[in-house]
Write a protein that binds this DNA or RNA. Structure first.
Length: 603
RNA sequence: GGGGUGGUAGUUAAGUUUGGUUAUAACGCCGGCCUGUCACGCCGGAGGCCGCGGGUUCAAGUCCCGUCCACCCCGCCA
């Protein structure tokens, strides 16, 4: 008696059989996706990662197999052998294998299954919580299997493209020295040196710069990074980057490599031809027009800065606007407007418009000044009734307002105004379905500010302290440091930041001026990055690089809604893994070994 | 740290506004019948700490307070 696995080997996967296989014997292994038991005749949909094939059990073909098939239930793992038959008139056009079926004459049940906690189907309605708990079952769903197939293709393409550009794949440590600034690190206690800690690397940044000093010239790595920050739909505490660094380059060289990678990814994964080079816009343009440094360019509807108009009229007899432009300090007050043209505005009821105020309050706004434009530029339903006619007319002209338009004003610190109006632009566009599907709008956002104010008003590096300032702004490093632009660039796709990088500083004099600008003394710098500064004393090449978020790329290429659908074992928003129940307490013995005592919390 | 949405059979939801008999449905599950289904069909059945803890009340899924969990967002993410 021939045995499955030993004598009877798999001949196809469950997506492979076609009309051309009719008449041949085939052996399939997989899981019972569904059964339709007609008593005298049993149908099984058999699923594996390749697809689904209908298997038929009839007493006339094999009484044993037919009897055993009566025991089959969802998610039993089985092997079947038999002859491939043409389904003729009864074919199923909805399945790739729908022209054929396997008439099973040998069946083995490898293992049985409890009733699954949710149905293993593509359009599963099961709550994500229960799916994450039973992640292995969730990962059986064809749509998730496809996501990981595409993700695997991304690794292959990245390696092929970058190797083709002479990049060397070299690994860097995860257990690294804690460096302050930037993302919060996960800490790992050292048992061998009690009282000291490693940090989990938030990125290989400093190591890849050492590679350039080492003369590797071009490095890349598909690398896990760890950041102990709050999670989002597009942010996980551990995530994967396609990280690269190149010597003897300027911005365009790095960007060209990334563009070639994107072109190849879209071709290999989606068989789409995207056009490079991608358009460029400066950080100043992006935030001015879209209120964001990662603008969604699939639709227009830009913002409009009307600070000058309001300033010219000294607030136009509206108290809150007067106060807004009078604000001074590190964050001068701005007034920005957003116009929703009549065609779209007519699709929003006044009640819906009023609801937008609640939405923007959630973004941190105090309120939402707004108006519907009536005949002859009159403002209706506006809370700013005291506004002077002169300023109203100037605002109409500045924003290009026409009858039927909706008009929104936001004022205050520039960053908040941009968050609010940029968020409103996206919110309304989503609500009104103004964002075209199946479009890929890549863009480089360039000329980021080198420095920014932290909460306590001190200047900090906005990217990292090794980012090179733009040559034309170098002389402002001491006189107007906040205005210095960096040789930094982000790649943006459909409103997502998918890569970010910069040309680095390789000159010691520039590096110490940047340290000085962020209030870092020579001693501080040595304590924090001494190993890098030491290396840079021995002929560092000019260099720059970038890191692309592989998970976000996978999410976009898969059309997934969340990073959790392209990461095999993702964390929840509180950073827990519902499948393994990490993080978890450890024993007091383990803590003792590490010389760690818990305060306030019992182990 | 802050704002919002949700939690009711295995699953997805209704019921909560206005407290009142035995908490409803679909899918799934179990048993029976069925040789052409593919959302199979027909007959029968089981299945509930209404997230958890307190309170108000003659009476709480429903009202109040607290808390936990999940999701979305702001801050944060050099």
């Amino acid at each position: 008696m021939p045995e499955f696995l030993k004598d009877i080997k798999r001949t196809h996967d469950c997506g492979g059989l076609r009309a051309s296989d009719v008449g041949t014997r085939a052996v399939l292994f997989g899981w019972v996706a569904s059964r339709r038991d007609h008593g005298g005749c049993v149908f099984i949909d058999l699923r594996d990662r390749g697809g689904i094939t209908q298997v038929v059990f009839e007493p006339g073909v094999s009484a044993d197999a037919h009897t055993l098939a009566g025991e089959l239930r969802s998610e039993f793992c089985i092997g079947v052998a038999g002859v491939v038959h043409d389904r003729g008139e009864r074919r199923n056009p909805n399945m790739p294998t729908g022209d054929v079926e396997l008439h099973c004459d040998q069946l083995t049940i490898f293992s049985r299954s409890d009733t699954p906690p949710f149905e293993i189907v593509d359009n599963s309605t099961a709550n994500e919580t229960v799916r994450l708990k039973y992640r292995a079952l969730d990962l059986r769903r064809p749509s998730l299997q496809r996501n990981f197939l595409l993700r695997s293709q991304i690794y292959q393409t990245a390696r092929r493209v970058l190797s083709g550009h002479r990049f060397l794949e070299i690994e860097t440590p995860f257990l690294v020295k804690y460096t302050p600034g930037g993302a919060r690190n996960f800490l790992v206690p050292s048992r061998l040196t009690p009282g000291t800690f490693y940090a989990l690397a938030e990125s290989p940044q400093l190591f890849k710069q050492l590679f350039m000093v080492a003369g590797f010239d071009r490095y890349f790595q598909i690398v896990r990074c760890f950041r102990d920050e709050d999670l989002r739909q597009d942010r996980q505490p551990e995530f994967t980057q396609i990280d690269l660094e190149m010597s003897f380059v300027i911005e365009e060289d790095v960007q060209a490599v990334v563009e070639s990678l994107m072109v190849a990814l879209w071709k290999d994964v989606l068989n789409l031809d995207i056009v490079a080079p991608f358009p460029r816009l400066s950080f100043a343009e992006a935030t001015a027009l879209y209120g964001s440094d990662k603008p969604d360019l699939r639709f227009g509807l830009p913002l409009c800065d009307v600070s000058d108009v309001v300033r010219k009229h000294n607030g136009g007899n509206v108290d809150m606007l007067q106060k807004a432009i009078a604000a001074t300090g590190p964050e001068p007050g701005v007034v920005k407007a957003w116009r929703l043209p009549a065609a779209e505005a007519s699709r929003m009821s006044n009640a819906e418009v009023d609801k937008l105020e609640e939405f923007v309050k959630g973004l941190g706004a105090r309120g939402l000044a707004r108006a519907r434009i009536g005949a002859a530029g009159a403002w209706t339903r506006s809370p700013m009734k005291t506004m002077s006619e002169a300023m109203r007319q100037d605002l109409n002209a500045a924003a290009g307002l026409q009858e039927g338009d909706l008009f929104f004003l936001q004022f205050g610190p520039g960053k908040l105004v941009n968050t609010v109006l940029g968020g409103l632009r996206l919110h309304v566009a989503n609500k009104l379905n103004l964002i075209p599907k199946n479009q890929w709008k890549f863009a480089w956002v360039t000329e980021f500010p080198l420095l920014e104010r932290s909460d306590d008003g001190k200047l900090v590096a906005s990217h990292h302290p090794f980012t090179s300032p733009m040559a034309e702004d170098l002389d402002k490093l001491e006189s107007a440091p906040a205005e210095v632009r960096a040789r930094a660039y982000d790649l943006v796709l459909n409103g997502n930041e998918i890569a970010g990088g910069s040309i680095r500083i390789h000159r010691a004099d520039v590096q110490s001026r940047v340290f000085k600008a962020i209030g870092l003394t020579e001693e501080d710098a040595r304590a924090k990055f001494g190993f890098l500064l030491d290396a840079f004393r021995h002929g560092p090449p000019p260099h720059g690089g970038i890191a692309a978020g592989l998970d976000r790329l996978a999410m976009l290429l898969c059309g997934a809604d969340s990073l959790r659908d392209v990461i095999a074992f993702p964390k929840t928003q509180k950073g827990t893994d519902l499948c393994t129940e990490a993080p978890a307490p450890v024993t007091s013995k383990q803590l003792e070994e590490l010389h760690i005592a818990l305060t306030h919390i019992e182990p």
